[in-house]
Amino acid sequence: MISARLTVNDEEREIAFWPSDTLLFVLRERLGLTGAKPGCLNGDCGACTVNVNGTAMKSCLMLAVEGMNQTIRTIEGLKDSPIQHAFIEHFAFQCGYCTPGFIMNINSLLKKHPNADDSTIKEFLSSNICRCTGYQEIEKAVKSLLKINREDKAGLPNDE
């Protein structure tokens, strides 16, 4: 076991974990942040996606130790953001299990490419699986958030 500090959702937390523990495991089992979901533990589904320094990361593909000295943001760290509103308004989820992962991926997408074109959106979003929706709803939600499609761009936390 090692004891270390992780900065998660703007809070510095001191926790003990094994070096072989994935970030996903530590977030869920040590910090009680269960928004990031286990779907495959194999990097395939994207349900575990969080942001590390503003970049989307599959937290099952990352060791918690690798998260030291980095800025980690999980879905619990997004409050009242335009993405969350857009997801609700466009019915972009059903069971909701993939939703935290999608939203965190989109959070990073919009930061990096506020006016992402179709192929960039596809490149980012094909990292996650949604088994419930037809993706068209998610597509609409994302496009409603492109800078060209809206006035303000408040609410996207900046972790870069």
Partner: peptide, 14 residues
Amino acid sequence: AWEKVTGTARYTAD
């Protein structure tokens, strides 16, 4: 809806 977009929605393993 809000539960599901904020990560507060709980599934069995949560």
